[in-house]
Simulated assay, not measured.
Amino acid sequence: MLRVLIADDQDLFRGGFAMILNAQPDIEVVGEAADGAEAVRAALELRPDLVLMDIQMPNLDGVAATARICAETNAKVLVLTMFDIDEYVYGALRAGAGGFLLKDVRRDELVEAVRLVAAGEALLAPTATRRLIEHLIGSGHPVPRLAARLGELTARETDTLRLVARGLSNIEIAAELFVSEHTVKTHVSNLLTKLGMRDRAQAVVFAYESGLVVAGSGPQVR
């Protein structure tokens, strides 16, 4: 059973998301929080598998709450936002969030997103990702210290990272590189370990910031 904590300062959203998720046979909402500080306390106490996190909340915003939860628990974080270009979202991704969705998401998309992020997949709202990346990393100038870290990866791991950042699934990467899906999973695991990252979402951010992938150069993460 996938255990979920919902953090949102609006009762209507919390209740709606809880109703949708609790209707799934494999998902249980184990708690709710009305602000970021409460979300951190609940995550530490309840130890959910995933936190559905509103990005803008009182007392402690979603970025700071995400950073603490990711640092102090093994929970995945899926961020929710009202706006498709939101600098807070980028901060949350850097803090360890596994992805983000717009709050007007359809119920089937929400359920799929929760399952994907809980499983360690990166998920960025498709209509917003290109604009978000170009808005926040739009200069196209790599950060030197991050670009240098690409040297820690093997050629195959670098190829894998580039394809991850383009939004390809493990099966699609395997087809591109003519290797097995198991080999791709190994490459992904190795590159995350070498770069000190929690999941694929952080790897996507790194790929853009390091200059490995340039905004607008290919398909975006789904």
Score class of each variant (00 low, 15 high):
90 Y>K: 13
191 L>M: 05
39 A>D: 08
199 D>N: 15
20 I>W: 10
129 T>M: 11
50 L>E: 04
31 G>P: 05
123 L>C: 04
7 A>K: 05
46 L>M: 06
88 Y>G: 12
108 D>M: 08
42 A>H: 02
142 P>E: 12
34 A>W: 03
92 A>S: 02
64 A>R: 10
54 D>I: 00
68 R>E: 15
164 V>G: 01
175 A>P: 01
104 D>K: 15
174 A>Q: 04
169 S>W: 11
117 V>D: 05
182 H>E: 15
84 D>T: 13
84 D>N: 14
54 D>H: 05
62 G>R: 03
33 A>G: 04
131 R>C: 06
103 K>L: 08
47 R>P: 00
86 D>Q: 08
198 R>K: 10
44 L>F: 05
104 D>M: 12
165 A>K: 01
131 R>G: 11
185 K>E: 15
123 L>D: 02
25 P>V: 09
221 V>R: 08
45 E>W: 04
216 G>P: 07
51 V>P: 00
88 Y>R: 14
210 S>D: 11
142 P>G: 12
54 D>V: 06
199 D>S: 10
220 Q>V: 13
66 T>V: 03
216 G>H: 09
207 A>T: 12
69 I>F: 05
30 V>L: 10
194 K>V: 02
33 A>S: 01
74 N>E: 11
121 E>M: 10
210 S>C: 11
196 G>Y: 03
87 E>F: 06
89 V>D: 02
171 I>P: 00
159 D>S: 15
222 R>Q: 15
219 P>M: 09
162 R>M: 12
24 Q>K: 08
37 A>V: 01
35 D>G: 03
82 M>C: 11
178 F>H: 14
43 A>K: 00
150 L>H: 12
105 V>M: 12
30 V>R: 07
171 I>E: 12
66 T>H: 01
64 A>L: 01
100 F>V: 05
181 E>T: 14
206 F>R: 13
92 A>W: 07
75 A>N: 04
165 A>I: 04
179 V>E: 10
99 G>I: 05
10 Q>S: 09
94 R>F: 00
152 E>R: 14
84 D>R: 15
23 A>H: 08
68 R>Y: 06
211 G>A: 10
145 R>H: 15
26 D>K: 09
60 L>Q: 14
3 R>G: 01
63 V>A: 03
154 T>M: 05
171 I>M: 08
87 E>N: 13
165 A>N: 03
172 E>F: 02
193 T>S: 11
75 A>H: 02
78 L>F: 09
123 L>V: 06
26 D>P: 01
126 P>Q: 15
55 I>M: 05
117 V>L: 04
8 D>W: 00
198 R>F: 01
33 A>Y: 00
125 A>I: 03
90 Y>I: 14
121 E>I: 04
42 A>W: 07
135 H>N: 13
10 Q>D: 00
59 N>L: 12
101 L>T: 10
180 S>F: 09
94 R>K: 14
33 A>M: 01
74 N>D: 05
81 T>K: 04
185 K>Q: 15
89 V>S: 02
215 A>G: 13
93 L>A: 07
109 E>S: 14
39 A>S: 10
206 F>K: 09
110 L>D: 13
25 P>L: 10
67 A>I: 01
19 M>Y: 07
221 V>H: 06
177 L>R: 07
207 A>V: 06
134 E>T: 14
